[in-house]
Design a protein around this nucleic acid. Structure first.
Length: 483
RNA sequence: GCCCCCAUCGUCUAGAGGCCUAGGACACAUCCCUUUCACGGAUGAGACAGGGAUUCGAAUUCCCUUGGGGGUACCA
């Protein structure tokens, strides 16, 4: 079987930060390339000069790299088919457009926006779809010259052959369109710049793209593109259209649903490796049922035939669970290091690195996002602790708690603060000693006085890390504050 | 409106005619562990959108309806 080099691409337009939908498409392309020993290419589609911005190009690079998707050819690293930015390829599009005009597959259209609007209005009134009439197609050289003389700037339209067009989609199966419904569409704008549908075809062909894996929002563009391939006598690639990513309310994922850009998730404290893992699960499922899986393993298991054709809801619950799982599985040094910027919201100087790791170890289990660590560890810092009014009133101020704390301050004075396990044992004895008070109530009083909270890290560890002085001080404060 | 795509638990999905009284994961509930919250463990509840047709037999094939999504630009 002739199996030419597999080449896929991701072609985002830099009109915003890298969207999760684009990231997911990039991921599937990347997986397909890596799985099949192919090439993954990054191309920047910046033909829309108005909306494209350089900072977004940078964001695309950064986001892709952050989630571990490296490309083999691209604007920044070059490659055999450079340049990889559409804005630097305009000459190429012009040549191809010219070819099409010469071969009769395209023609200049001199219609003004106003004239087109009028046609559209009529179509609307007659309740039929607007399909460009194609009247400029028949113009003679003289008429063309006349318009040029008038100072009109033409567009180039592709001459649509009307026919039933079938193509086989790798994920959707056979799809059929009636191209008569489309009409002659613009391939070169009046500013001599290509439209999307034309530029993609030219680039994909020039760059020898073998498989086009993209979102299903492009499915209706496909017949037009196939027709251009045909008109140009180029080989038609394989298509695969992925279901969209939807918001929990099943509408298109947008800003109003919260974060939509990859970097926002990472900034929020999602681990990039957890995030890609989650993305992979949107439309693909591991044959062995093990969903927590690094990219390296997903590559070997990945199979494009197994991609779901259904749109997928972006569910935060599962992302959160995955992220927590990844955090828990990380070696403690690694978490500590990666959480540094959040940890540093507290003044770390009072602790050694070793102690800091103990703190992280003590709180890591209930983290969903790395960023939450800042709050989880806050009571380990400072001489005193903030206790909110409700806890002060309902937990600390009760006579029962006061009694516990008076007793506990005695115990606290003679603990061995180097030994968490020992502290734990003493605490056990203490609970017995405080009977008939319930163990839970006893510990809540102690915990609240020390941490200002009703839940958190193992209390013996808290006591150890707080040390004698602060433990005594905080307990004492909790007692005196209410007298 | 027209065109195209899609349709299994709340969500992501497994399922390619009998293995399905439909499996897994997240979320949810209960219980266990436990000084708290978590973590971990166990159990439970929970779906083939509806209607026809094909077949000995349909979640799986076909048709219709309904619902959802996408497209309908000199945006990409």
């Amino acid at each position: 079987m002739q199996n030419p080099q597999i080449r896929v691409r991701i072609a985002p337009s830099p009109t915003g930060n890298l969207h999760v939908g684009t990231a997911r498409t990039a991921l599937f392309n990347w997986l397909f390339a890596r799985k099949n020993n192919g090439k993954f290419i990054l191309r920047i589609e910046d033909t829309d000069l108005e909306r494209s911005e350089e900072k977004y190009v940078q964001n695309i690079y950064d986001s892709l790299k952050a989630i571990g998707l490296n490309w083999d050819e691209g604007p920044d690293i070059g490659g055999e088919y450079a340049p990889y930015r559409q804005s630097e390829r305009t000459e190429i599009y012009r040549e191809y457009a010219q070819k099409l005009v010469e071969s009769g597959h395209a023609y200049y259209c001199w219609c003004s926006t106003a004239e087109l609007e009028a046609e559209k209005e009529i179509a609307q009134r007659e309740k039929r779809d607007f399909v460009y009439s194609g009247r400029c197609k028949k113009f003679s050289r003289e008429e063309t010259e006349k318009y040029r003389q008038e100072g009109r700037t033409p567009v180039i339209r592709f001459s649509m052959p009307a026919k039933k067009l079938k193509f086989n989609d790798m994920v959707k199966g056979e799809i059929e369109f009636d191209t008569a419904l489309t009409g002659d569409f613009v391939i070169m704008k009046s500013n001599n710049t290509p439209t999307y549908n034309f530029a993609v075809v030219v680039d994909d062909a020039e760059m020898k793209i073998s498989h086009i894996i993209r979102g299903e929002d492009h499915i209706s563009n496909t017949p037009r593109q196939i027709l251009i391939y045909e008109a140009l006598g180029l080989e038609i690639p394989q298509f695969a259209h992925l279901g969209m990513i939807l918001a929990p309310d099943r509408s298109k994922l947008s800003k109003r649903h919260g974060a939509t850009a990859v970097n926002e998730f990472i900034d929020q404290g999602y681990l990039p490796e957890a995030f890609v893992n989650f993305l992979a699960l949107l439309g693909w499922s591991p044959p062995d049922g093990e969903e927590v899986k690094p990219l390296s393993e997903i590559i070997t298991l990945f199979n494009i035939d197994k991609i779901s054709s259904t749109p997928a809801v972006f569910e935060f619950d599962k992302l959160n669970w995955l992220n927590g799982t990844y955090i828990r599985n990380l070696p403690i040094e690694n978490i500590t290091q990666r959480a540094r910027k959040y940890l540093e919201k507290s003044d770390l100087s009072a602790y050694s690195e070793k102690q800091l790791r103990e703190i992280v170890e003590a709180v890591k289990n209930n983290l969903v996002k790395l960023s939450e660590i800042a709050d989880s560890i806050s009571y380990f810092f400072g001489e005193d602790v903030n206790i909110d009014d409700q806890i002060r009133e309902t937990i600390l101020k009760t006579e029962q708690s006061q009694q516990v704390l008076r007793e506990f301050s005695g115990l606290a004075a003679e603990l061995d603060y180097r030994d968490a396990e020992g502290i734990n044992e003493k605490l056990g004895e203490f609970r017995k000693q405080m009977k008939p008070l319930k163990p839970k109530d006893v510990m809540w009083a102690v915990r609240a006085s020390l941490t200002g909270r009703t839940h958190g890290a193992d209390i013996a560890v808290v006591i150890k890390l707080l040390g004698k002085e602060r433990t005594l001080r905080r307990v004492q404060n909790a007692i005196t504050a209410t007298v």
